[in-house]
Amino acid sequence: MPDAHSVIRGTPHVPALLLVGSEASGLDRTSQAYRAIRRQIIDLTLPPGSSFTETSLAQQWRISKTPVREALARLRRDGLVNALPRAGYVVSPITLQDTDDLCAVRTLLCSEAAAAAASRGVEAPALRRLEVLSKVSFELAAGEVGLEESLQAGIEFEAIIANYSGNNRLAKAIVDLLDELERVLRMATLISPDIASPPGELQAIFERLRDRDADATRAASHKRCERVRQDVLQVLSKSASVSRASIEMPVPARPK
Results as ranks from 00 to 15, higher is better:
Ser150His: 15
Cys110Met: 11
Ala171Glu: 02
Lys135Ala: 14
Ala159Ser: 13
Gly26Met: 05
Ala196Trp: 06
Gln203Ala: 10
Leu96His: 04
Pro255Tyr: 07
Val122His: 02
Leu17Ala: 14
Ala196Asp: 04
Arg186Phe: 05
Glu180Gln: 10
Ala220Arg: 06
Ala153Glu: 00
Trp61His: 15
Pro252Ile: 00
Ala58Arg: 03
Gln59Ser: 13
Ala245Asn: 08
Cys110Ala: 12
Ser137Gly: 04
Leu108His: 11
Ala162Asn: 03
Val145Trp: 10
Ala16Tyr: 02
Val232Glu: 00
Arg254Gly: 09
Arg86Thr: 08
Asp213Gly: 06
Val14Leu: 14
Ala196Leu: 04
Glu156Tyr: 08
Ala4Lys: 12
Thr11Gln: 15
Pro15Ile: 01
Ser50Lys: 13
Leu27Gly: 02
Leu27Asn: 02
Gly146Val: 00
Ala58Val: 04
Ile247Gln: 13
Gln32Leu: 11
Glu123Met: 10
Gly10Cys: 12
Ala58Thr: 07
Ala117Glu: 09
Ile8Phe: 06
Arg35His: 09
Glu180Lys: 15
Arg208Ala: 02
Gly10Gln: 09
Arg129Gly: 05
Val251Leu: 11
Val228Met: 12
Tyr34Cys: 03
Leu57Ala: 02
Leu75Pro: 05
Ala16Trp: 06
Ile160His: 01
Glu149Asn: 13
Gln60Met: 11
Ala171Val: 01
Gly200Val: 06
Ala58Lys: 03
Gln40Asp: 15
